[in-house]
Amino acid sequence: HERALMVNRLQKLTRMLRVHPDPKWKQEQQELIKRLK
């Protein structure tokens, strides 16, 4: 369940980064990718 939330968050971040590349979001995205591996 928590994994699904993280995947959701990651997808949302990816969409937001396409619109507005924010370093903070980029960092969070990298963190999520690490944790999901």
Results as ranks from 00 to 15, higher is better:
M6Y: 03
V19G: 11
K12D: 07
D22M: 05
R9M: 06
V7T: 04
Q11R: 15
Q29V: 15
K12A: 12
N8E: 15
E28F: 04
L17E: 00
K24G: 07
N8H: 13
E2K: 09
E31W: 12
L17Y: 03
Q30N: 07
P23V: 05
H20E: 03
E2Q: 11
W25S: 03
N8Q: 15
E2R: 08
K12M: 14
E28Y: 05
R9L: 07
T14N: 12
Q29W: 12
A4N: 10
H1Q: 11
T14L: 09
E2G: 06
D22L: 10
E28R: 03
H1M: 14
V7R: 13
L10H: 01
Q27H: 10
R15F: 06
K12I: 13
E28P: 01
R35Y: 08
P23Y: 03
L32G: 00
Q27T: 08
M6F: 02
H1G: 09
I33H: 02
R18K: 11
K26L: 13
R3W: 14
L32A: 00
L36I: 06
L36S: 01
D22K: 11
Q30Y: 09
P23W: 05
A4Y: 11
Q27N: 08
R18G: 05
T14S: 08
A4K: 14
E31D: 11
H1C: 15
T14Y: 09
K26F: 12
E31N: 07
L5H: 14
V19D: 09
R15Y: 06
R9S: 03
I33T: 03
R15I: 09
V19S: 11
K34V: 08
R35W: 12
L13V: 04
N8P: 01
I33N: 03
V19I: 13
M6N: 02
L17W: 00
P21T: 07
L13D: 00
E2S: 08
K37M: 14
Q30G: 05
P23R: 05
Q29R: 12
K37E: 06
Q11S: 10
Q11Y: 12
H1T: 13
R9V: 03
R15N: 07
I33R: 07
L17R: 02
V7K: 09
L5R: 15
V19L: 13
L17D: 01
L36W: 02
E28G: 01
R18T: 06
K24L: 09
K34R: 14
L10A: 00
H20D: 10
D22S: 09
K34M: 12
L13A: 01
Q29H: 05
M16H: 03
K26T: 05
R15W: 08
Q29D: 01
L32P: 00
L13I: 09
P23D: 04
I33S: 02
K34F: 11
H1W: 15
K24M: 09
K12Q: 15
P21C: 08
L17T: 00
V7Y: 14
L5K: 14
V19R: 13
K12P: 00
A4T: 12
M16Y: 05
P21D: 12
E28A: 04
R9T: 03
R3M: 08
H20M: 09
L10R: 01
L36C: 01
Q11G: 05
Q30C: 15
R9C: 09
L17G: 00
R3E: 05
P23A: 08
R9Q: 05
P23H: 04
V7L: 15
V7D: 02
D22P: 00
K24N: 07
Q11H: 12
Q29E: 05
W25F: 10
K24H: 07
L13M: 01
V7E: 09
H1E: 11
L10P: 00
Q30F: 06
E2P: 06
R9I: 06
T14W: 08
D22I: 05
Q11F: 10
L5I: 12
D22H: 11
M16N: 02
L32S: 01
K12V: 13
P21G: 07
Q29S: 05
K37F: 14
E28L: 06
H1R: 14
A4G: 09
Q27K: 13
L17V: 03
N8L: 15
R9P: 01
R9Y: 05
E31Y: 09
V7I: 15
R9A: 03
R18Q: 10
W25K: 05
K12N: 06
A4S: 08
K37Y: 15
P23I: 05
Q29F: 13
A4M: 14
Q11N: 11
I33K: 04
L17F: 02
V19T: 13
P21M: 09
T14D: 04
L13N: 00
Q30H: 07
R15A: 12
L10M: 02
M16W: 10
L32N: 02
K37W: 12
R18V: 04
K24Q: 09
K12G: 02
W25Q: 05
K34W: 07
R15E: 13
E31Q: 09
E2W: 14
L17H: 01
R15D: 07
L13Q: 01
E31M: 13
R35F: 10
K12W: 15
L32C: 02
K37Q: 15
Q30P: 01
I33D: 00
M16G: 01
K24R: 12
D22R: 08
R3P: 02
W25A: 06
L36F: 03
Q11A: 13
H1N: 13
K37S: 10
V19K: 14
E31I: 09
H20Y: 13
R3V: 11
R35A: 11
M16K: 05
R35D: 02
P21Y: 15
M6D: 04
L36E: 01
V7A: 08
L13G: 00
V19A: 10
V7W: 15
I33P: 01
R18D: 04
H20W: 11
K34N: 09
H20A: 06
W25I: 13
E28Q: 04
K34C: 13
L10T: 00
M16T: 02
K26P: 01
T14P: 00
W25Y: 11
H1P: 11
N8D: 12
Q29L: 15
N8R: 15
L13F: 02
W25L: 15
K26G: 03
K37V: 07
P21Q: 11
L17I: 08
Q30W: 12
E31F: 07
K12S: 07
L32T: 01
K37H: 10
M6A: 04
T14K: 10
K12T: 10
R18E: 06
Q29A: 14
M6P: 02
E2D: 10
H1D: 13
H20I: 09
R35H: 06
P21A: 10
E28S: 02
W25P: 01
V7F: 13
K37L: 13
Q11I: 15
Q11T: 09
L10G: 00
V19N: 13
A4L: 12
N8M: 15
Q30I: 12
Q27D: 07
M6T: 04
D22A: 03
R35G: 03
E28I: 08
M6R: 04
R9H: 03
M16R: 04
N8T: 15
L10W: 03
P21K: 08
R3H: 10
L17P: 00
L5G: 09
P21I: 05
K26Q: 08
L36Q: 00
K24I: 11
V7G: 04
R3T: 07
R18I: 07
E28K: 01
R18M: 11
K12L: 14
P23M: 04
K26D: 03
R35I: 14
E31V: 05
I33E: 03
D22E: 06
L5N: 10
M6W: 06
Q11V: 13
D22Y: 09
L5Q: 14
D22N: 14
Q27A: 14
